[in-house]
Design a protein around this nucleic acid. Structure first.
Lengths: 192, 192
DNA sequence: GAGTCGATCCTAGCATCGCTAGACAACGGA
DNA sequence: TCCGTTGTCTAGCGATGCTAGGATCGACTC
């Protein structure tokens, strides 16, 4: 028993190492630089070891995405809990969301830009993803306004944030007016 | 003279063929399927011919993007011109934008998801891109509301549409309430 | 404590990718 | 008719994700 347990522990530890290394490498040099060879070299194992943990590169991206979703949900809950009143909560949520995207671009890509093989908007959606959406819903649901479904409102607000995050990072939007755009979004969309 | 002109014409024609074929292949099977080999085979030339027209695959994607930007600008102008009043124009714009993204996913990817090597939000931005943004600005500028810069308003509205387009297509948003989300966006963001 | 057997890991290789060098052919101008 | 330029192709490079097969190591059995 003890031997098997130890091996299982070591396996789990190595899996964490793979995910953490992939994330680190992606944040440092972008996802293009995360090749199976480089990743294997960094964890000091041979390439095929990766495939004994994950079905392929997609699944590794997916693992990074799930990790990121958990962190993002926590960050949003922390920020909104510290804010007073619905309006302040929405502002804090928007800022935190965009900050997370800006400071963890590789994780954000893994979540929403790359194919991590994850299911969305289904019952078989992984728990961290559902929970991240729930974190958004908690603060956004209360400012949906009359006659608007809280879920639909949250989806729309989220989409707007997602658009800002991706277009800004891709250099499609000049960064100068980022603050004004967030303000505009909160002022107009949220019913306080 | 005539000989050179003919050759130039043929070259331009082949360049159009390359871009059109790349676009067609991307729409049919996704950009992953657009390899230089497959593309070369479809246009019935060898691989290196592509590189006598474009510096690489990125530039081909960029060419498809520019073509798409022109079409999108035209579609938006046509839709808004046919609408009566600011509110109707904004609704038409939003619908048209999302329809374009839904019906030309590969082109939309070339424009905003993939790296086509294009500059954005600078003075050296290609004309079609600037013009597409101008088309948005024409109808959105008039509903920015007091004290909000039309350009910043357009950027924000555009980002929201972009978020809806990408998240919907990636399966991140259930398609059932697409209409409600657009309605919500127009109702709240636009000042009519 | 020795032998066997299974799990674990690595070397080597496949098909495919974007891209390029160098050989070859075809065509226009003298 | 010959030459030279221009254009095109064949072949190949390095790198990618992924996999088959053999080798090695360690844990149980007698």
């Amino acid at each position: 028993m003890s031997v098997q347990e130890r091996k299982q522990r070591e396996r789990a530890e190595r899996e964490r190492l793979i995910v953490a290394t992939a994330r680190e490498l992606a944040e440092q040099q972008g996802w293009d630089a995360v090749t199976t060879r480089r990743l294997a070299e960094r964890i000091e194992y041979s390439q095929p070891v990766l495939y004994s943990h994950f079905r392929g590169k997609r699944e590794i991206i997916g693992a990074v995405a799930l990790e990121g979703a958990t962190e993002m949900a926590a960050a949003i809950r922390a920020a909104t809990a510290a804010a007073d009143g619905p309006r302040a909560r929405v502002t804090a949520l928007a800022r935190t969301y965009l900050d997370f995207a800006a400071h963890n671009p590789a994780v954000y890509d893994a979540l929403f830009q790359l194919d991590g093989g994850l299911a969305f908007a289904h019952e078989d959606t992984p728990e961290p993803l559902k929970d991240a959406f729930a974190a958004l819903l908690e603060s956004l649901g209360e400012v949906a306004g009359d006659g608007v479904h809280p879920g639909v409102f949250t989806e729309t607000f989220w989409a707007a944030l997602h658009g800002l995050a991706t277009l800004t990072r891709a250099g499609r939007l000049p960064p100068e007016y980022a603050g004004q755009r967030v303000e505009l979004l909160v002022d107009r969309l949220a019913v306080v």
